[in-house]
Design a protein around this nucleic acid. Structure first.
Lengths: 155, 155
DNA sequence: CAAAGAATCTGCGGTAATCGCAGAATTAAC
DNA sequence: GTTAATTCTGCGATTACCGCAGATTCTTTG
């Protein structure tokens, strides 16, 4: 439900290099990883598995939702009363919500939603505003996705 | 530089199912995909390759940046004058920027940045505000990542 | 410091997946 | 209806994956 939030794991240089390789190509073979980092194939495989098991990293397909039938995306800024984390965790349970962060600033939470069309988005917004602890919200409908990348390890 | 923005490709049910499988596990074997969608291994492999080549989908490792040495993340709302797309495309060139969307609402652009620390973030904000066409900006520093997922194909 | 314990690594054999290609089948274009 | 283009199947040859046994390194503890 909510991956990668618990205690920070210690990552050595090899682990970071492995992550970088998989950020460039999530389907690279274990053998290629092993050669690149100077380990045996079995060791490389074990390290990848450990990174996955500990939720430090996940390897997934990422798409532009508009190309897969979800034509309405939006970011919703939410102001809360009480504990923002609590509201955030509840928002995380909403199916259409794919991204929730607690922030400092004029919003307490930023929530990204993926919807099929405008009525669907409207319904999700209603759903969010009815949540206990939500004071107000502001919606930013996506017009164009200009950039999306995941390889900040490799710069 | 800027993937998945051009003309929408036609996706049939099989392509969608393949995407769903890879959203759950980016390292699933071609053989397993083939069995799941009822194609030969070679055909499944060709279709995955096509989806990757056409930038409909990318398979990548995704991490919580805070665990990999980038402790300061933020969303920056940007107001522009002139063509927001133009500014958005220029923002996409900034190294620390991993996500840019053009939006409707009180911001014209939403920009996510990944930084190593506060001074680094400060520098990136300065950099953004100096860009031609940027009128003002508002920064939302991330305190906690509550949810992050990529499998809206599978609901 | 020494010894026990835990974690991590290497090497390897059996199995399974990947790759590339030739030809068949299907779909699209005219 | 014919041509062209795309997509699929089948199948060797190659390569990668998996699990494990034993060696090595790192950590803990008396």
């Amino acid at each position: 439900m909510c991956p990668m939030t618990e205690g920070t794991v210690r990552l050595d240089a090899t682990a970071k290099r492995i992550i970088e390789l998989l950020q460039e190509d999530g389907r690279i073979s274990y053998a290629a990883i092993a050669k690149a980092v100077g380990l045996s194939e079995a060791a490389a495989r074990a390290r990848v598995q450990k990174l996955l098991d500990s939720d430090v990293m996940q390897v997934v397909a990422v798409t532009d939702p508009t190309q897969v039938g979800f034509t309405r995306q939006a970011m919703i800024g939410v102001r809360t009363e009480g504990d923002p984390m609590k509201v955030g965790d509840r928002l995380a349970l909403v199916r259409e919500v794919d991204y929730v962060v607690t922030t400092a600033g004029s919003f307490d939470l930023l929530v990204e939603v993926v919807c099929e069309d405008d009525p669907h988005l409207l319904d999700v917004i209603r759903q969010i505003r009815e949540l206990e602890g939500v004071v107000s919200s502001e919606t930013f409908v996506y017009l164009k996705l200009n950039k999306q990348h995941y390889n900040w390890g490799t710069r």
